[in-house]
Design a protein around this nucleic acid. Structure first.
Lengths: 336, 336
DNA sequence: TTGAAAGCGCTAACAT
DNA sequence: ATGTTAGCGCTTTCAA
């Protein structure tokens, strides 16, 4: 006996395949007696539905694809974990779309909705992964998509993230409140909206405090430890060194602190370092990292919930959803 | 125009659907002229194959499922990233099976091969996620599965990991070579083979060095920062404290070092700490962590390659594959 | 309450 | 080289 299907059940239970199908999906439409008979037969033949067939027939794969720059990034992996959790609880599976930042791969993964392998997309990128131009943009042949952490700029899709501008302002202000005046910044990829917004917030907080924005104090990088490592060197090479460095991610901060230590600088005694994200490791670092906590779990959960609702035809109430961040002051920053 | 299928192409190109199918999949079976005609028509109608239909027909989903305890764990996420990479390069997608250690979820995800949503399984657990007993174990109705990092004990499935016993011996020996005699250990979940093997290696290295195994020096935990945090306290409470602590994962080591610091102990001056895994953060910690480097990328790649080959009907050469680990001495351990 | 039958969109014999 | 046709395993009208 190779592969038991509903027709095997039907044969064994002495009913039609239609009845089997009903008994399994729509119990109320068959008599109690047949239902039991069918269930017993299903059990007996060791039935497992072929979900490919179900999906083809119902035009629903019950998969979503999460398009994410890098699963191995601590911040990202937290988000995706939360996504998987709610997807699973609602009977969906998540297809992993690790793009390593490649626009081409973003498009490939996004195409999975066209090819019916996925019913929707959670996009953690600032790029729209398909042509809106080419064809008519009849809003309803766009796939269900929710934009997480980043923002494509297209309001046809709901997006969820923190208010990066405000968060960066809070971070910068914390440093200013601590008496710092020469506050450097190490950014993420400036293509990304998150990084642009943080840069804007940084700048604005400076201005509001009457501090001059000094271009030589910002190093444009990307969200990675290696970047922080190198960027810190550039900062250290300056004649007038910063007394504080605002890193646009905790990973950057980690690399930054490493370099500082290499050259004999103490954090926070010589230089204060501020991170962003509050990855799980942040509080365990030496010194524990002052940072902006993102509600990672909440972001992931909200993205997934929104998407699944979208798939079910429910329109979101707010298209642009901002979740609350929080300044977490630990030991990597100190009053001047 | 809603959904272009091969029959739309056929109509437009003035050929049969079979010819379209051939032109698309099997170009050599069709004349150059028709091939071009078909391609043009496909382009014109904006064709994207319905992979659900293809999969149903060919009985191949081109998905694999990665069953993993926790995507947010740095070690795990490295593995899964490598898996995704090779899967993608071979035209497969990976379904994320984050189990949070739950055997039930392991089984749920494993069932995806039965329901045809996945063609194979990469299992990072020591438990077999389905009944081998119940039915006849006719080896060929087992799904393609490769066991990564852990070992179920079933040699019907290929497995790939490092030699945990040897690696733990190397780690312990390093501490012994440094003159340590009271060497504590903080283990992972002792249900897991990796942790049992490491415990065995630890013990064996002790014995070979003529050191007595002291049960009070081992704290049984799990692979998490929180665990390391708490376990370290237990160790510190002992009358005769260890001079070195061998943590069975870097995350444990991180938590352990944190607690040590809390209580004013310096690593490595007062106590040496050794990790395991060499997660990307390890070298950036303060102090940089001495650890056993696992070939994460290689493990992931090998798992995926093996599985995909298995799916293609190629039998693996070795059922139990050990990849080389490496002792990485940094600054968290020091000679006594 | 149950069943017959028509597909979902595609592939793969088998014919032509 | 191209076309006909029979399904893959299931859901879902529609009729009985």
């Amino acid at each position: 006996m190779a592969k038991a299907g509903i027709k095997d059940i039907a044969a064994r239970a002495g009913v039609s395949i239609a009845t089997v199908s009903h008994a399994l999906r729509n119990p109320s439409r068959v008599s109690e007696a047949t239902r039991l008979k069918v269930l017993a037969a299903a059990e007996a033949v060791g039935y497992t539905p072929n979900n490919l067939a179900v999906s083809l027939r119902t035009a629903r794969s019950r998969n979503i694809v999460a398009i994410i720059p890098d699963v191995a990034d601590s911040y990202n992996s937290g988000i995706i974990k939360a996504i998987e959790k709610v997807a699973h609880s609602r009977g969906y599976s998540v297809l992993l779309g690790d793009t390593q930042g490649s626009p081409e791969r973003e498009r490939e993964f996004a195409a999975m909705t066209r090819s019916r392998q996925a019913d929707g997309i959670i996009l953690m990128s600032h790029r729209i992964p398909f042509d809106l131009e080419g064809k008519r943009v009849s809003a309803d042949d766009l796939p269900p998509l929710v934009n997480g952490c980043e923002f494509t700029g297209c309001d046809a899709f709901p997006s969820v993230s923190i208010d990066d501008v405000q968060a960066a302002m809070d971070a910068t202000r914390h440093l200013i409140d601590y008496g710092h005046r020469r506050i450097a910044a190490i950014t993420g990829d400036m293509q990304s909206t998150s990084s642009r917004d943080r840069a804007a917030g940084y700048r604005r907080a400076l201005e509001e405090a009457g501090l001059e924005f000094d271009e030589s104090l910002v190093v444009y990088g990307e969200y990675s430890v290696q970047c922080g490592e190198q960027a810190a060197e550039k900062l250290l090479l300056q004649k007038a060194r910063p007394t504080a460095i605002f890193c646009f991610s905790d990973e950057i901060a980690l690399g930054c602190m490493y370099t500082l230590r290499q050259y004999g600088f103490s954090v926070p005694d010589d230089i204060s370092v501020m991170g962003f994200d509050d990855i799980p490791f942040a509080k365990y670092l030496a010194p524990p990292l002052t940072t902006i906590a993102q509600p990672v779990e909440d972001i992931g959960r909200t993205c997934a919930t929104l998407l699944l609702d979208l798939i079910d035809g429910k329109k979101p109430e707010t298209m642009r959803q901002f979740l609350p961040h929080r300044l977490v002051v630990r030991k990597s920053t100190r009053p001047l």
